[in-house]
Design a protein around this nucleic acid. Structure first.
Lengths: 105, 105
DNA sequence: GTACTATATGTCCGATCCGACATAGTCGTC
DNA sequence: GACGACTATGTCGGATCGGACATATAGTAC
């Protein structure tokens, strides 16, 4: 974000900064959501790389399209358990999951 | 396990093999429990390294001694979410968590 | 053996999660 | 612009999780 836009927004009563600042997350809360986001993106990658739709993939996992969409969106209603189990269920390895979490992508 | 013992046990009606075979876990179920175990051990390491008791550590996290004991034991009633949040809450980094999951310890 | 501290196990109930369904967007193709 | 396939969002009932408490077990010092 450039400085002009920042100034304009702040002038209009917005606080501008990182998601952490904005939502006033603690360090560990921020780390946790980033971690979930990383897994969610990886989940999408895995699916898209196979050329599957959300509905197909969900069925394969015994879930529903809507929940799978929420997984990919790292929705607040999806747990780390569900994300990790889904990744493993789609063939990802423990090593891959760990690397994604550790940032290495 | 040596072959003699294996034979004796199987002769007595036991199936002998890995935990995976015994409990008939699928590959991803096995990977998931191993992953939880790794985090649970790491959690204990972190606590012990600081010289804290379970009760002290639990209080610090806003939890109870009994639940913390279950975390360290990777009890079935403990989620990945709780394990990861607890580790981050004790100061572990995302990178460390990822490495533990990826096996590198 | 008792007393004390630390850890483990069992249970309860309020909170959160998950599959399912409905429905609303989005993007092509005709 | 209507249709179709895909994805996103809202909600609900049943299932699972989590803090708390009680209690059991393990280890140590006296």
């Amino acid at each position: 974000m450039d400085q002009n836009k920042k100034d304009r927004l702040e002038g209009a009563g917005w606080r501008v900064g990182t998601a952490e600042d904005f939502l006033e997350l603690t360090r560990e809360e921020a780390a946790f959501v980033e971690l979930k986001l990383a897994l969610a993106h990886f989940l999408r990658d895995v699916r898209v790389r196979q050329g599957w739709t959300q509905a197909q993939t969900a069925k394969r996992l015994g879930s529903s399209q809507s929940r799978f969409a929420k997984m990919e969106a790292a929705d607040a209603s999806v747990s780390l358990d569900l994300l990790v189990k889904s990744l493993l269920g789609l063939g990802a390895t423990r090593e891959q999951v760990g690397q994604v979490i550790a940032r290495a992508a």
